[in-house]
Simulated assay, not measured.
Amino acid sequence: MEYRYLGRSGLKITEITYGNWLTHGSQVENDVATECVRAALDAGITTFDTADAYANGAAEEVLGAALKGQRRESLEIFTKVYWPVGPKGPNDTGLSRKHIMEGINGSLRRLQMDYVDLYQAHRFDYETPLEETIAAFGDIVRAGKALYIGVSEWTADQLREGQALARQAGFSLVSNQPQYSALWRVIEAEVVPASIELGMSQVVWSPMAQGVLSGKYLPGQPAPAGSRATDEHGGARTISGFMDEAVLANVQKLRPIAAELGLEMSQLAIAWVLQNENVATALVGASRPEQVAENVKASGVKIPAELMTAIDEALGSTVERDPAKTESPATRVA
């Protein structure tokens, strides 16, 4: 397992991060989730990403319990705040000072930890002054409850404004967490250049396009039983945008490229996002421990330029590149 720096900071993280969105506390039983976390540790992963909104806090609880007994200093723990939590009242969402302060305390309690390494704004909050949000994050850093601050799915302009305020407040934003894959490249035109300028890295989610780039979904055939596309607890909804016949057909064209590199298609998908030097880590989840062992084989893979071109040609016009697809909700949803 290889490490990369997170933004223009001194923090090193594993280039593959274990994330527990859509799994812990919802799709898989807690004992299986714990086995997956231990498999990640065995594979050399020390960086873990979660959020307070995942399974309404249950994901943080499962992760904290699974990591109990591990040397805290040897782990990099990420969590997030923004989406509705708890009873989902009017102040249980967003990036107000009240919700951020209560959010970090709740996350630390569920994780059974004194601090997190990275605390992230899960979306941009149009209803709270950005100055209020940044000031609250600065106080959390000074209190030692979070060592670094990041954001998720912010536009280039939002990153610039946020970073300027953060530096005035005595800290820096070190990362952005966007969706990014060979099929979803909306950050490349604006967000990545802005992040390089600002000293921020990408912590990318869904490098396998919700599993579509694994190649298991075949055009003209029903989704495999037990797959995300058949999950009624949120998985089917999140993957629906990629379940297009043209997309599925083009993904199958990647098989010979993966074979030439000696990789499974899922490993090729993860390795592809890691070719972008602004990507610090790829978030990968798992519903079975053996998936973790397979995914980590993407670490350290170098894809030759001619095969990167071949991937572009195979996926063709089914790649989404529109920068406007980077967006946060206009209003909070309780």
Rank of each mutant, 00 (worst) to 15 (best):
residue 210 Q to M: 14
residue 285 G to R: 00
residue 207 P to Q: 12
residue 209 A to W: 01
residue 233 H to R: 15
residue 220 G to E: 10
residue 230 T to V: 14
residue 281 T to F: 12
residue 228 R to P: 07
residue 223 A to N: 11
residue 214 S to D: 10
residue 285 G to M: 02
residue 217 Y to H: 05
residue 279 V to H: 06
residue 240 S to R: 05
residue 206 S to K: 06
residue 232 E to C: 12
residue 226 G to A: 12
residue 236 A to P: 02
residue 251 V to K: 01
residue 216 K to Q: 14
residue 246 A to V: 07
residue 232 E to P: 08
residue 237 R to I: 15
residue 252 Q to K: 06
residue 212 V to M: 11
residue 224 P to Q: 03
residue 257 I to P: 03
residue 268 L to P: 06
residue 280 A to R: 11
residue 281 T to Q: 13
residue 275 Q to Y: 13
residue 220 G to K: 02
residue 285 G to D: 01
residue 286 A to K: 00
residue 222 P to F: 10
residue 285 G to A: 05
residue 209 A to K: 00
residue 249 A to G: 12
residue 232 E to V: 15
residue 252 Q to W: 02
residue 266 S to T: 10
residue 273 V to D: 05
residue 280 A to C: 11
residue 271 A to E: 04
residue 218 L to G: 07
residue 225 A to S: 14
residue 279 V to P: 00
residue 255 R to P: 03
residue 236 A to N: 15
residue 242 F to R: 00
residue 273 V to S: 09
residue 281 T to D: 13
residue 207 P to D: 12
residue 262 G to Q: 06
residue 229 A to R: 09
residue 203 V to Q: 08
residue 283 L to V: 15
residue 236 A to F: 05
residue 271 A to P: 04
residue 222 P to H: 06
residue 244 D to L: 08
residue 214 S to E: 12
residue 218 L to A: 10
residue 277 E to F: 07
residue 279 V to F: 10
residue 255 R to A: 15
residue 258 A to T: 00
residue 217 Y to N: 05
residue 223 A to S: 14
residue 247 V to C: 13
residue 221 Q to P: 06
residue 238 T to N: 14
residue 274 L to Y: 10
residue 215 G to P: 07
residue 230 T to A: 12
residue 251 V to Q: 02
residue 247 V to G: 09
residue 256 P to G: 07
residue 213 L to D: 02
residue 218 L to S: 09
residue 266 S to C: 07
residue 267 Q to Y: 12
residue 245 E to H: 09
residue 265 M to N: 07
residue 244 D to G: 07
residue 259 A to H: 11
residue 214 S to M: 05
residue 203 V to R: 05
residue 243 M to D: 04
residue 255 R to N: 07
residue 274 L to S: 07
residue 274 L to H: 05
residue 246 A to G: 13
residue 207 P to C: 13
residue 217 Y to M: 02
residue 233 H to I: 14
residue 230 T to Y: 10
residue 255 R to W: 05
residue 280 A to L: 08
residue 256 P to K: 04
residue 268 L to N: 04
residue 230 T to W: 09
residue 274 L to I: 01
residue 205 W to I: 02
residue 254 L to R: 00
residue 235 G to T: 13
residue 275 Q to C: 13
residue 257 I to Y: 08
residue 215 G to T: 03
residue 263 L to S: 05
residue 251 V to G: 07
residue 225 A to M: 09
residue 204 V to H: 02
residue 224 P to D: 09
